[in-house]
Design a protein around this nucleic acid. Structure first.
Lengths: 215, 215
DNA sequence: ACCTGAACACCGTTCAAGT
DNA sequence: ACCTGAACACCGTTCAAGT
């Protein structure tokens, strides 16, 4: 049967996380599913944080950012963003994983980050600004990937909508009014395009301002 | 001495979270510090998730968004954003709290969200778009509030920078090059203004596009 | 190199009982 | 209404030992 390898462990952990949430991913539970003693996992990952990092790394392993080319940076940045989003979409628990993980410990994530940083520089941003932009872009991509309305049970959406509609309308009039889209009943197409447009529009606007104020 | 009230519990929990990280905030630990049995807390909060929600609520209790006025929505949205950021800055663990909490269970957060939704509508966005914009704006504000470079020990920054500089430069050239600002050695002023500008510029750009395509 | 067994120091939570 | 005591079913991790 499949040997016990860091890869296999991370894969199984992601399966559990996708199915039952990241809290269900436990060293002991994971070991039990792999037919092994909890301590066996400690040979492959020195602790649980490393396991999380391994999950995150395996998550974006399939996404190798393309090397820089001659197209305008806006296009390349958009490609990087939608590529990352598409990759993260493969696992429901992706967002939770990246929230709990130390990003520096995830080589494949660093590669994407590095690429975003480079594109920031070619866009004309300073080093400091490129740092902010890249972190902002990647964070937003992760948030967009975790779309409500994408691959969620009808029942869950309905429950959330009911919860929002039960709020006092005199205190939260807009939330009650827009309970349906807030709960996840939104066009997935709109969600993706609009989200990416929003993030990129901000970056492009600031880039344009820079050029203006710089003779 | 101070009575054991939900308020006092949430306050003490935030203190622990600020000082030692949110993982240190434990029912048992918290009870011990309050000189009480762990079970005592279960009278005030029905479980740990509710405690987290209580912490989040207490966190933004001091920030009541101003009612809508006659100024342009851009200004009002900016005020809301910087106000929220300033409030969150009061507690180091704010970001972690909001990552772990179900936002619907936090009344004061819902009030801010409701306000952002309303401003989205007056900006001319559809219901769906306003949902996306508001969530995006609040998420970004939380991220910006948790600034690296703001109120962090020198030692921590130095350690992170060393970690980044130790990465293989042929694989992550830009990360290694910009290790200093990435680790948190950035002008706090720039961090704040640039971050808020970035988010608002994106929203304003999309609002402008809408107007253009809509006679 | 790779895994097991037993043990330690923790968790959140329930349930019955006290005042 | 507000809190305690004892117990249950879990955690992550260390350390010595096996093969």
């Amino acid at each position: 049967m499949g040997k016990l390898t860091a890869q296999a462990i991370a894969e199984r952990a992601l399966e559990i996380g996708d199915a039952e949430g990241l809290d269900a991913v436990t060293i002991r539970r994971l070991a039990a599913e792999l037919g092994v003693t909890p301590m066996a996992l400690y040979w492959h990952f020195k602790n649980k944080d490393q396991l999380l990092a391994g999950m995150a790394d395996h998550l974006i392993a399939g996404f190798a950012p393309q090397p820089a080319d001659e197209r305008p940076w806006q296009e390349q940045l958009r490609d990087l963003t939608v590529g990352l989003i598409r990759t993260l979409r493969a696992h429901r628990c992706a967002r939770d994983v990246f929230e709990r993980v130390g990003q520096v410990a995830v080589p494949n994530y660093l590669a994407v980050w590095n690429r975003a940083l480079g594109l920031g520089r070619t866009a004309g941003f300073s080093a400091d600004e490129s740092c902010l932009i890249s972190q902002y872009l990647l964070r937003s991509a992760i948030a967009i990937a975790d779309a409500p309305g994408h691959s969620r049970d009808e029942q869950e959406v309905r429950a959330r909508r009911a919860g929002l509609q039960a709020l006092p309308p005199e205190r939260y009039p807009f939330i009650v009014e827009m309970a349906a889209p807030l709960a996840g009943g939104m066009d997935p197409e709109l969600y993706d395009t609009f989200g990416v447009d929003l993030v990129l529009a901000g970056i492009e606007a600031l880039a344009a301002r820079r050029i203006q104020s710089e003779p």
